[in-house]
Each structure stands twice: as structure tokens, then as C-alpha cells.
Computed example of a mutant assay.
Amino acid sequence: MYKVMIIEDEPLIALDLTKILEKKGFEVTGHVGNFEDAHALFHANKPDIILSDIKLEDNESGIEVIKELKKISDFSVVYLTSYGDDEIVEKALQTHPVAYITKPFKESV
């Protein structure tokens, strides 16, 4: 079973993602909305996959959080964001995500 960590500052979106992922058989290790909490949860659970928003609490960047966590250990990343401009996409691609999904999104069966 893959362990998934969610970095999302919108609690309702994080809970919705948790339900979807658990229904699909993933183990969700938790969800956080900022770098400090992400760092702590990452160390505690060593996820295989991180789903990350790009714009987080207090104007923190999910891309920068992912860059820092990748210095610690390898994992797959999927970005979920409402931002799709070329500059942000280019920065996100530098972290080698497996997917870049724009919000709003729908669960696929």
C-alpha cells in the first residue's frame, strides 16, 4: 500500500482528497498546509507520494517545499493547483512531478 501525504492549505479539499485516496486503497499519512508542518509529517511518515498545492498558507510555495523535501528522500509528487501560468508550470516541472492537475478537479472512476 502506498503512503500518501497531502500538502494543501484548504482543509475541505484536503479532506476530500483523503476520502478519495483511501477509497482507492492508499494510506493517507495526513495533510498539512505549510512548510514547517510538511517537514514534520514527512519525517514522521516517509510517504511514497506527495500531493501538493502550489500556493500555501502565508504565501509559501508548495514547489519550494517539495524541493526541500526531495533533499531528504525520494518520492513521487503530484501538483494540484489553480495556477497554470507558464512560469509556475516551468518551476514545478523542475521537481519532476508525475502529474500536474488543475483545480477544480473531478474524481475519476
Rank of each mutant, 00 (worst) to 15 (best):
M1W: 07
Y2M: 07
Y2F: 08
Y2W: 08
K3I: 12
K3Q: 09
V4G: 05
V4R: 05
M5W: 03
M5Y: 02
I7Q: 04
E8Y: 01
E8F: 00
D9Y: 10
P11D: 10
L12I: 10
I13W: 03
L15R: 15
I20G: 01
I20E: 02
L21H: 00
E22T: 02
E22W: 01
K23I: 06
K24I: 01
G25D: 02
G25W: 05
F26H: 05
F26V: 06
F26Y: 06
E27S: 09
T29Y: 06
G30S: 11
H31T: 15
H31S: 14
V32A: 04
N34A: 14
E36Q: 15
E36H: 14
D37I: 11
A38H: 05
A40N: 07
F42S: 07
D48R: 00
D48C: 03
I49V: 07
I49T: 04
L51W: 01
D53A: 10
K55D: 12
E57G: 15
D58N: 13
N59E: 12
N59F: 12
N59K: 14
N59S: 13
E60L: 08
E60C: 09
I63G: 06
I63R: 06
I63V: 09
E64W: 14
E68F: 04
L69A: 03
K70P: 01
K71C: 04
S73I: 03
S73Q: 08
F75T: 01
S76C: 10
S76H: 07
V77W: 00
V78Y: 00
Y79L: 01
Y79V: 02
Y79S: 00
S82P: 05
S82K: 09
Y83L: 09
Y83M: 12
Y83C: 09
D85G: 08
D86Y: 15
E87N: 13
E87Y: 11
I88D: 09
V89Y: 05
V89P: 04
E90Y: 13
K91Y: 09
K91Q: 13
A92V: 06
A92D: 08
A92S: 05
A92M: 05
L93H: 11
V98N: 02
V98E: 02
V98F: 05
A99R: 01
Y100W: 04
K103R: 06
K103A: 04
S108M: 11
V109S: 12
